[in-house]
Design a protein around this nucleic acid. Structure first.
Lengths: 205, 205
DNA sequence: GTCTATAATAAGATAGAC
DNA sequence: GTCTATCTTATTATAGAC
């Protein structure tokens, strides 16, 4: 994530924007070069090929996404409070870059020519990251009767899914319900509370 | 959706597969032609350009998705029963083609050069389709005290989001939790019940 | 309607000067 | 490190025979 030269930084910055917006196949090296304020030759000088540049960007963004996801929230013992702050923090993070999640899900779904090793790197390098610990936390809450009997895996990605879908659906929702501004801050704030309430009522004992 | 010639049908069939898997930019006319058992010249003879062929496929799939979504489920008055059968039916539909939803969300998110008119067509043509009626149904259930006070928009796409995310996340989940087979039928069955229970507990009075 | 052959162009990548 | 000019290949699209 830290690059020695300023040019390198500008390239990765530009590439990230273009890849996220257009996807790997839709992205054009020319556009990336242009946005970075350089030419294609220099692009290849630094990253050798589109594929390598893409891998760099993808790795950065996925690992950032996971760091945000698992670390951005104060760890509270009590389940209700934890859930509340988690949902608020995560939706805020997603709100900062609504396109990112679409990009990641698309590329992950493209099946992993490169990805097995890539995921290895991400999970190895980020020490605090642990999907397993989230599952454990839920299991314990069930045992302590803090929440009702639920499948921990299903609950975990129900929470994630509700947060993520908020932004995945936005372009469609604008078409379906033009009377509402789904990108407005007030909608996002309301969404947070509605998601929290739905889940909390859904799992409290 | 009905094409005069057999060749036309085969082309659209092949194009649908390729576009869904690779996306618009990643798809290759050569591959589509090959899968349809013809050559590229004939492809252009029928559909003139990649863009037109793509529009045809996209329109078909989106409208099919909406038909399935709004029509595939028996309309029950009682909320709990309706919710249960709706979730089961919709997850079953999505399960038939898990890649489809990723394709649609990606393309919708790509922003609508062509799409405004396209959506018009879809919603005009499909008479039974009505997002508004779903919202109304929820509002009534709230008034009748069948469910607690919730925002109908948020509830509607929370339901949709939970169903959809089941399949969006699959490739990632396989990596995160290799100990579980998320594509197995038993997982899907369990998922249906967990989603229903979460929502129903989440909204019952 | 369907094919082979080919044009036209777009896009990634490199050579070589500075 | 950075640029201009250029090569190579992939990809869409069409011309023209059958």
């Amino acid at each position: 994530m830290d690059y020695s030269s300023e040019t390198e930084r500008k390239i990765v910055q530009a590439a990230t924007e273009v890849f996220i917006q257009k996807g790997k196949d839709g992205a054009r090296m020319q556009e990336i070069a242009h946005r970075a304020g350089i030419n294609q030759a220099l692009l290849h000088y630094y990253f050798r090929s589109k594929d390598r540049l893409y891998r760099e960007v993808f790795k950065n963004e996925v690992s950032r996404q996971f760091r945000d996801f698992f670390n951005s929230v104060p760890v509270t013992e009590e389940m209700q409070e934890f859930l509340h702050s988690f949902i608020h923090h995560y939706i805020d993070k997603l709100h900062e870059n609504p396109q990112l999640i679409r990009f990641i899900l698309w590329e992950i779904g493209s099946g992993g020519e490169n990805f097995p090793e890539l995921f290895q790197e991400i999970f190895d390098s980020a020490s605090k990251i642990s999907p397993q610990s989230a599952i454990e936390k839920i299991k314990q809450a069930v045992q302590r009767n803090e929440i009702r009997q639920v499948d921990p895996y299903n609950l975990l990605f129900s929470i994630i899914g509700l947060c993520i879908y908020t932004f995945l659906a936005q372009p469609l929702l604008k078409k379906l319900f033009p009377e509402i501004d789904f990108t407005a801050n007030e909608f996002i704030e309301k969404r947070k509370e509605e998601v929290f309430n739905l889940i909390w009522h859904g799992i409290k004992p």
